[in-house]
Amino acid sequence: MSALPPRPASVPPLDPQRYAPSAERPLRAKARQMAHQMNIQPHEHAWAQLVFSVAGAVRVSARHAGADSSYLVPPARAVWIPPGVVHAVTAVEQADLRTLYLGEPAVQALAARSPGGGWRHCRVLEVSALLRELVLQLAACADDPLAGAAARQRDAAITTLVVDELAQARALPLGLPLPSGPRLRRMCEAMLEQPLRHPDIEGWAAEAATSPRTLSRWFRDELGTSYAQWRQQLLLARALQLAARKQPMQLIAAELGYASPSAFSAMVTRAVGMPPSRFFAEA
Rank of each mutant, 00 (worst) to 15 (best):
L192V: 02
T210K: 06
Q241V: 06
L223R: 02
L223P: 07
Q229G: 04
D200H: 12
S226M: 10
Q247R: 12
I201H: 03
E207D: 12
A243I: 01
A244C: 01
S226I: 09
E189N: 05
L215W: 05
Q241D: 09
P195L: 06
L184W: 01
T210M: 13
L196A: 00
L215R: 12
Q229N: 11
G224I: 01
I201F: 03
Q232P: 04
E222M: 10
R245T: 13
A228T: 12
W204A: 06
Q194Y: 01
A243R: 03
A208L: 10
C188F: 05
L242W: 10
I201S: 06
T210L: 08
M191W: 03
M249F: 10
F219H: 05
Q233G: 13
L184I: 04
R213M: 15
P199D: 05
W230A: 08
R245D: 14
A237P: 01
D200C: 11
E207G: 08
L215P: 03
C188S: 05
M191I: 11
P248C: 14
P212K: 14
R185T: 03
E207N: 10
R197V: 07
G203W: 09
P248F: 09
L234T: 04
G224V: 07
S216V: 07
L196Q: 13
M191P: 00
S216T: 13
R231M: 08
R220A: 14
R231D: 03
Q233K: 11
L215H: 14
L240N: 02
Q232K: 10
F219Y: 11
A239C: 03
E189R: 09
M187T: 13
R245K: 14
A228H: 10
S211P: 03
A253W: 04
R197A: 13
A244W: 05
R217M: 11
A253G: 12
L240M: 08
A205E: 07
L236D: 02
A243Q: 11
T210P: 03
A237S: 13
R213N: 15
K246N: 14
L242P: 04
A190T: 01
W230I: 00
G203T: 01
L196K: 02
P248R: 07
R213H: 14
W204Q: 03
L235D: 12
D200I: 04
A244L: 01
S216M: 12
Q233T: 11
A206R: 02
Q250M: 15
R231V: 06
Q233P: 00
W218M: 10
L223C: 08
R220C: 11
P212F: 15
A205V: 07
F219T: 00
R238E: 15
Y227G: 00
T210G: 08
S226A: 00
W204V: 09
L196D: 07
R231S: 00
L196M: 10
K246C: 13
D200P: 01
M249Q: 14
C188V: 05
T214M: 12
I201D: 05
E207M: 04
T210A: 11
D200G: 05
M249K: 10
A243F: 03
P212R: 02
K246M: 13
Q232A: 01
E207L: 11
E207W: 06
Q247G: 08
M187A: 09
E189Y: 00
K246G: 10
M187R: 01
G203P: 04
Y227K: 06
R217W: 13
E222I: 14
A243M: 10
E202S: 12
A206M: 03
